[in-house]
């Protein structure tokens, strides 16, 4: 009620508000300058450079599609593209699978606000240490003589260490899921926390059991959180290279790893091609996710 009154008030205020004055436009200038210099121009440059001519030791601004043809005719790179998409989808599903129930618990079933904050802070504790440490910490966990294998053997559940745990696609997925899960939990818990408990009671009162309430009320009302979480996770996972470098033993090559390698060997034009491909993928993913819900309306 008060919310609507408030938004009604805002709507009215908006109508009465004069158009932004020319002078107030100066306020956005630093931001616009920054973004132009360090985001728009570099991206345009990246597209431009992807068409330059690359030789073993030099790169010249002579336009050619050679690097592009190279990318799309090479099995190695197409495999990397596919691996990137596969790992992205797997991690997205895994973070959702682990994150949603966690968020459901924190956001909906813990009604004590203090406890809710404490639990969310607990989710963030791993961030108190650096990204690389968090990734590398998985090695002594998953390794052949790592914690998991030792425990499994100690309990006589396995007779030999499970080697597939480390330096495989699985270890990359495990590592990424742990690192990015919190970005899924946060937005979903936020949306769930905003659900009016009376709304859920009203549904029960009308005869709905938990399954139906979840399907028809909780899930739809938390969708904006899922979408925001999915955008966070997708953008970060698609651009990943460190986790796969540290945990895959160079067996898993993501587009990010290829960029790193190509830049390392000064193959700027080719790195630019991969950069453009990756940027397009991210753009498509974000646009598609935004079509699922109208965030402007829901937030």
């Amino acid at each position: 009620m008060t919310m609507t009154a408030l938004s009604d008030g805002l709507a009215e205020a908006r109508i009465e508000q004069p158009k932004p004055q020319r002078t107030t436009l100066w306020l956005v200038l630093p931001g616009v300058l920054w973004m132009t210099l360090f985001l728009v121009l570099p991206m345009l440059m990246m597209v431009y450079v992807s068409f330059w001519t690359q030789t073993t030791f030099a790169i010249t601004p002579v336009l050619t599609t050679k690097s592009w043809v190279n990318f799309f005719s090479s099995d190695t790179y197409l495999t990397a593209l596919w691996t990137t998409i596969r790992i992205w989808l797997t991690v997205l599903a895994a973070t959702l699978l682990v994150g949603y129930p966690t968020a459901l618990f924190v956001g909906l079933f813990v009604r004590n606000k203090t406890l809710q904050t404490v639990l969310l802070v607990l989710c963030v504790i791993p961030f108190w240490t650096s990204f690389l440490i968090r990734v590398l910490a998985w090695r002594p966990m998953l390794g052949k003589e790592g914690a998991i294998n030792l425990v499994l053997q100690g309990l006589h559940l396995t007779s030999a260490p499970i080697e597939a745990l480390l330096f495989s696609e699985l270890s990359v997925v495990i590592g990424m899921t742990q690192i990015y899960c919190v970005f899924m939990v946060g937005p979903i818990a936020f949306m769930l926390g905003r659900i009016d408990p009376n709304v859920l009671e009203a549904a029960r009162d009308l005869g709905a059991g938990f399954g139906r309430i979840f399907r028809t009320i909780i899930l739809p009302l938390s969708m904006p959180g899922v979408v925001v979480g999915a955008i966070f996770v997708s953008v970060m996972v698609l651009g990943e290279f460190a986790t796969s470098a540290a945990l895959s033993g160079r067996k898993v090559n993501l587009l990010g790893n290829i960029i790193v390698t190509q830049v390392g060997s000064l193959k700027w034009a080719f790195a630019a091609v991969v950069g453009v491909v990756l940027t397009v993928i991210m753009g498509v993913v974000v646009a598609a996710l935004l079509r699922v819900v109208d965030l402007r309306k829901e937030l």
Partner: peptide, 12 residues
């Protein structure tokens, strides 16, 4: 059936 003070309508 209960009518809630804030109506508790399903917003979506």
């Amino acid at each position: 059936s209960m009518i809630f003070q804030n109506y508790a309508l399903f917003p979506h």
